[in-house]
Amino acid sequence: MTLAATPHHVGSRIAKLYRIAGPFSLILLGLVLIAIFAPLIAPNDPNSQNLMGRLKAPGTEARGTLYLLGSDELGRDLLSRIIYGARVSLSVALLSVVLSGVVGTTLGMAAGYLRGWTETVIMRLVDIFLSIPAILLAIITVAVLGPGFVNVILVLALTRWPRYARVAYGQTLSVAGMPYVRLARAMGASWPRVLLRHILPNIIAAMAVIATLEFGLMVLFEAGLSFLGLGVQPPTPSWGATLSVGRNYVTSAWWIATFPGVCLFLLVLSVNLIGDRLSEYLNPKTR
């Protein structure tokens, strides 16, 4: 039934993927590769301090170390910190999107298919969560739970699942009313089977669009929390935290804030553009 994964098929699949995602996907791909291979690419240890080499401008050398993008307030190589920072940004965003996506989609589908009190309870909760500004909720919960890598992911998932739940709920309602779902039930499919085999595959595209857009948002949320000192803790390099430090040196050492800022901008931009193209591709009206 499934096509064999011959090189030709793999090639044409990649070509198709590229056609859908567009040229900006190359930026994302580049950043992902950088994150994966950070130890191989980074010219220096991101955490090794050099107090004699503080605030060096891009391109300068101090004590045998070349600071290609300059150094920070502790004399750490900015380029290496940015390269390792990509790991933090991407992994926090990915894990929080997966977690909130799975939880939100499951609850939304349950509400949309089972209806009754399940629907009432879940959708009331969604309304309540969505009425609180997300970043505020994130800040408050982090303040309670304490900062750190795992907590940031948990907090982001807690804050963002309602968005998936609401979309999954609406999609499930409309797909559940489709004649093919009625037929599946008339053929004796149990409700888990109806949900997993007939509804989920037909709503997954819509969920993927939301997940892509959320991914960009999660990158910003993580940066924002780290900027406020509520995210991943030093010395782990995070773009948001570096940006926050750089703010103090904007006039004397512009590079500290600028380069992580540019990276954040490029990452979020490329993810959002991919999301837009994806939703356009999947929308039957524009296809």
């Binding site: 489709m178 004649p179 093919y180 037929l183 008339a186 053929m187 004796g188 007939h198 595959p201 037909n202």
Partner: peptide, 25 residues
């Protein structure tokens, strides 16, 4: 009742095209 459906009683509908899942062979 669910175990009877598709086994002892089946039902077919109008709208033959929309009654089939577009993503399943």
């Amino acid at each position: 009742m669910r175990r009877l459906r598709g086994q002892r009683i089946s039902m077919i509908f109008q709208e033959p095209v929309a009654s089939l899942n577009p993503l399943l062979s």
